[in-house]
Design a protein around this nucleic acid. Structure first.
Lengths: 334, 334
DNA sequence: ATTAAATACGTAATTGATTACGCAAAATTA
DNA sequence: TAATTTTGCGTAATCAATTACGTATTTAAT
């Protein structure tokens, strides 16, 4: 059952990597063929430098007093590597006697690298090698029925327009629009689910349900809603599968405290946590309660991660009604 | 002048890497979207394990006593990674509480990994994610004009049949067949070139030409050929650009000593060294001289590398006629 | 002219994979 | 049955690239 290697991103990723591998694999052996003492990974840098010295010899910048070589960042930009990578490769090539450095004349920060005579003496052989390889690749393109280059270009263009992330997010959004709904708590319909969903994860992670939990479980309307709070319930195809509540806060520094965040494990992946927290933030904004507080536990990694994503900041942990609390966070909206 | 990024292996390599990058880039962000606490690189291993537990639940091996999980190497084979990679990923997933290990029942060397309940509770979300991504990729395939999958398949098949190395080697061979020729030494035509080509690199690398060199430079026919040796000259488009000579040996342990290996720097990359050494080995075989000896210097890295490639073995360095000698090698043919 | 921001670049740490190596268990051979 | 080879797998080293970060220098802003 290796279905997952036959479709999807995994498949594409590994096929691409595979082909890259095959194209890149015998690079070292190819250099050997030409009796060139050049490590494959030096090639782009070498090529960039050889262009520079070719330019100079053809007289382009001879008027500028024989300026030759290229700076580290210029090479990096040209070949599409990071500058530390180039810096490192140049160091290796210097050790092999192929390049030398000098300081930039107009800018003392710059390191200008250029080929030594030994390095320059290799350009001929490397050009030969390069041309043969280019021809081999072109032949391959002609032999193959489907145009790889054009296909790559297509995909690059399409992904440029809308990244994979965007595309996936849109598909997900569309799928969920019909499946997931966030509704205000209705004691008649949701009382039991509110209790069950929360009790489930609390028991699973911590074993014991605490006093403060029962306070909210038993009389949610009286103890949460009638005191100015609010409870949201997430429905997946009509079934309640998640809850999140906002309580008015004793601590005058905050407007609301978020409590009873629960998503059924069977319903994960539908963005229910995200939708619930967004409902809460929207409600907070609507009612002018900008200063939010919440408590959690480091074991609820997914939840804490979500809070962080929505901008909640960690506080030094102070007193709490809950024994299981070891994380406190706040968010000031706007 | 970024010609080199527009054609050839470099171009293909970097375009492929680029596309892979784009497809792989926001993997972490996509997991986030599904509120899944899974690192992208865990995915293949996770998927393999989820298949195992799905299999078990569907009853396939329930008869076998609830055997579940997969061994490290089985996973590695399945997902195409090396086994240490899998071992490492499993260790990380164990730390995250997603997998557990047990020893193989029939084979005590095996480590059998399986998902914990926590791990299993994530499969639903991950499957959702996986299906959305697969759909997005399929949509991309439909949107693009050229068929990337088919093109990749073409190239894989073509490279399977003949690797890039083979293709390049053949092109090179063909090109050189008309350009390069190895001929026996002719004192009238080659005397001056024999001296010049060798003097050139000796002076460049070591400054001084030695007594033993002049012995061979000045009377090559008398001192090499008439004593039972042989000199080969490489011609590039008719021009002498390389030499290699075989002398009868004083040391009775060897049949020939190879000397005066020179290739003009301007002619490197045409496989001249290779052709010269092959000519020598063929001559040795033809004349029944199987035991070969040569001296060199570590500075001649390309030459020593070539000798090694043709099977020469390094000796502890003993006495030599040449002051510059710090490498001695031998090869016994057949 | 002074201060702040941006830039060039080197070093160090990290990442995600690999190969090298060694130990213990199993399988094979003598 | 003993000895040898093969296999499973963990640890360590390596590799090729990256990001993070610090320092020196230049440019821009006040």
């Amino acid at each position: 059952m290796d279905f997952f290697r036959k479709t999807g991103r995994m498949a594409l990723g590994s096929r691409l990597r595979n082909l890259t591998e095959k194209v890149t694999a015998d690079a070292a052996a190819i250099y050997d063929l030409y009796e060139v003492e050049l490590r494959p990974k030096w090639f782009p840098v070498f090529f960039a430098l050889s262009q520079a010295s070719a330019l100079r010899r053809s007289g382009a910048s001879a008027a500028a007093g024989g300026e030759t070589g290229k700076t580290v960042t210029a090479i990096a930009r040209e070949i599409g590597h990071s500058h530390p990578s180039v810096s490192c490769i140049l160091k290796e090539m210097k050790a092999a006697g192929l390049v030398r450095f000098r300081q930039g004349r107009t800018d003392a920060r710059q390191t200008v690298a250029s080929l030594t005579p030994k390095g320059r003496s290799m350009t001929h052989a490397i050009n030969l090698q390069y041309e043969d390889v280019a021809r081999a690749i072109e032949d391959l393109g002609r032999e193959s029925e489907h145009d790889l280059w054009a296909a790559i270009e297509d995909w690059e263009r399409l992904l440029e327009a809308r990244s994979l992330l965007q595309r996936v997010a849109e598909l997900k959004e569309k799928r969920e629009a019909t499946e997931v709904e966030i509704v205000p708590f209705d004691d008649g319909q949701h009382h039991e689910a509110f209790r069950r969903l929360n009790e489930e994860w609390i028991r699973q992670l911590f074993g014991v349900v605490e006093e403060a939990d029962y306070y909210e479980f038993d009389h949610p309307v009286e103890n949460i809603i009638q005191k100015g709070g609010c409870i949201f319930v997430a429905l997946l195809r009509g079934e309640p599968v998640g809850t999140f509540a906002m309580m008015r806060c004793k601590n005058p520094a905050y407007d609301y405290e978020l409590v009873k965040f629960a998503v059924s494990p069977r319903a994960q992946g539908h963005g229910i946590g995200r939708r619930l927290i967004e409902a809460c933030l929207a409600h907070a904004r609507r009612t002018g309660g900008y200063r939010l507080f919440l408590e959690s536990n480091h074991k609820c990694a997914a939840a804490v991660h979500l809070y962080e994503k929505y901008g909640f900041r960690h506080l030094a942990v102070g007193h709490s009604e809950y024994a299981r609390c070891d994380v406190q966070m706040e968010l000031v909206l706007q």
